[in-house]
């Protein structure tokens, strides 16, 4: 069925990308690393979005993940790629779980904005604290893999692709479970879900925590791929906006969508910046508005249409 096809496609695509990456020039490898790192956060936001929740503040978790890597690096000298990833995901996940107790009571725009507010608190703290790098942030040393320091970025690229694959498969599986299937049900009618004997608060809390773990992991991977973190690019509200932008761009239709959407975003931004250094924001904003108006299902809906809209749905 539909889901099996998704899993199969993911596995094959990951294989093709990993092999292709070995022959691709560095800048393309970079675009894929940035894109797939971000895609992890988008995956989490997608889970929330299918429940009707949009967070305008997930840069909080993205930034926590990135800064976890930075602090581990600068204060403790930890360079192992898996330790770093784990730290980012765990720190963000724990924070997300705790904050989730508040968040799960909020919906709609209040949910969106409470998240922004919390992310701005972190932003304010980091910007003003010299030991946290203030506005400058930190440079991040190259990651090692089980003590080995790779010559090129390729191993990190493969790891990011595989992490992305694992996350996509896991989310795909989760969405098939009963709890996962509650997503759309909650969006449509919360009270009915309660009458069915499920706790909406618990379901949302779980989804929220999942999304924060993914966002933390995304931040950690992004920090490693870029080799730099700073509050403006990792925590500020504009970053949350970007994350949501990519989520909308991708569309909620399938766990593959975030990966395609993130790649499109990276390429779009690279070229917008290259072609119109003074108007790249305009290009991004206009694209965003166009998607909201004319392609509410995101790029994924376009792919479905082109693919002849199979039996799924």
């Amino acid at each position: 069925m539909f889901n099996d096809r998704t899993a199969k496609f993911l596995l094959l695509a990951a294989l093709v990308i990993c092999v292709g990456g070995a022959f691709a020039p560095n800048w393309i490898v970079n675009q894929f690393m940035f894109g797939f790192s971000r895609a992890l956060a988008i995956l989490g936001l997608m889970v929330l979005w299918r429940t009707g929740l949009v967070s305008f503040g997930h840069a909080f978790y993205f930034g926590l993940g990135a800064y976890a890597v930075a602090i581990l690096d600068s204060k403790l000298g930890v360079s192992d790629v898996f330790l770093r990833l784990l730290a980012g995901a765990v720190v963000a996940g724990v924070a997300g779980f705790l904050i989730g107790f508040i968040m799960r009571n909020y919906r709609d725009i209040f949910f969106a904005m409470l998240n922004t507010a919390i992310s701005m608190v972190l932003f304010g703290i980091v910007v003003k604290t010299e030991s946290l790098g203030s506005t400058d942030g930190f440079a991040i040393s190259a990651s090692t893999i089980f003590g080995l320091a790779p010559e090129t970025k390729y191993p990190l690229f493969v790891i990011i692709t595989l992490v992305g694959l694992t996350a996509a498969l896991a989310v795909n599986f989760y969405l098939k479970t009963t709890f996962g299937k509650l997503t759309t049900a909650i969006r449509d009618n919360e009270i009915r879900v309660e009458y069915l004997g499920f706790s909406v608060a618990h379901a949302i809390h779980l989804k929220y925590t999942i999304s924060t773990i993914l966002a933390g992991g995304a931040g950690a991977l992004m920090a490693m791929s870029l080799g730099q973190v700073d509050p403006e690019s990792m925590i500020n509200w504009t970053v949350s906006g970007e994350l949501v932008f990519v989520t909308i761009l991708s569309g909620p239709g399938n766990v593959i969508a975030p990966f395609i959407g993130s790649l499109v975003f990276e390429v779009l931004r690279t070229y917008a910046f290259e072609l119109a250094p003074q108007a790249w924001q305009l290009i991004m904003g206009a694209t965003f508005l166009t998607i909201i108006f004319f392609l509410p299902g995101g790029i994924w809906s376009l792919i479905e249409k082109l693919g002849g809209k199979k039996n799924e749905k």
């Binding site: 970079n30 700073d230 910046f273």
Partner: peptide
């Protein structure tokens, strides 16, 4: 453009060199 923060500049710098 140099704006947008250090992280964005790092990404752009890589593009300049590698792309």
């Amino acid at each position: 453009d140099e704006g947008g923060g250090a992280t964005k500049q790092v990404a752009e710098y890589r593009n300049l060199v590698e792309k």
